[in-house]
Computed example of a mutant assay.
Amino acid sequence: GNDTAHKLSLLTSLAFGTAIAADDIYLEGITNISIEDIQAASDLGYRIKLLGVAQRTDSGIEQRVHPTMVPHDTVIAQVDGVTNAVAIESDILGELLMVGPGAGGDATASAVLGDIADIAKSRPGAQHVPAFGRPAKALLPYKRARMQSHEGGYFIRLKVVDRTGVFANVAKHMAENDISLESIMQHSKHYADPAEPKTIILVTHATSEASVRKAIVSIKGEGYLVGEPQVIRIERPKAW
């Protein structure tokens, strides 16, 4: 996710006129994504993509890079290989999506030539547009938003011991934190050993990250969890 984070920091400065703040990006890579998560996402109608998202909020600018579930019928779900996609939400034009090569010899050469042309145009006496749309000294200080203010849907995968009442207890902790569930299901193989942990998969309606984390902490305290829970954000963009 580091490459995505550095690209995002540049795009954030271009979009909001702020100083580059690559070190202030909330960053999750794909290390913890398992084949089980990929299969569950497919069964639910999603694909998992590594997204970089920047958004201006009341508390500042939120920058985050993390695996995200997106509906499989959206354009961004079909972006594979060296192709990149940039989605922009604007006040006048609405949502825009640009898709093109983000790596490879031709794409890199084109970007380098573009930089050289910009340097040539910035010679003394020539009129040019600054790289960030304004002089670097005019960029605004970056104010980091509270990450846990983000709201959206969530995919939650739990491995639990096979014990009566666990299913209901998980649902109870979600309700206590005002989390509305879109679906809750238990995955198990018919030939599995009854003593093996069972997998519970939850999909929530839009909720806050703080509520999800609080519910997970409560569930951990019950003693029936096996390993660490998996939490993946879900994005349902209109134009992506």
Rank of each mutant, 00 (worst) to 15 (best):
I216L: 09
L225E: 04
A120D: 04
R144W: 04
V226S: 15
S218C: 10
K214Q: 14
K238V: 14
R123M: 09
I232N: 03
L158R: 02
F132N: 09
E235K: 13
I232G: 00
A175K: 12
I232K: 03
G133M: 11
R123H: 14
Q186G: 05
F167D: 02
G114A: 06
S149Y: 01
D178G: 07
R157G: 02
G114R: 08
H190R: 07
W240P: 02
V129W: 05
D193G: 01
A117Q: 03
S180D: 03
P229I: 00
A215Y: 02
V203E: 13
L225M: 06
A126G: 07
A171H: 09
K159G: 03
V170Q: 05
A131H: 09
K143M: 15
F167V: 03
V129A: 08
D115W: 11
G223I: 11
I232E: 04
V160N: 00
P194M: 01
L202Q: 12
V212T: 00
D115E: 07
P229S: 02
A175L: 05
H173G: 02
A175Y: 13
Q148E: 15
M185Q: 10
I234K: 01
L181M: 12
R157T: 03
Q127D: 14
D193E: 03
P141R: 05
S218F: 03
P130C: 14
K189H: 06
G223V: 14
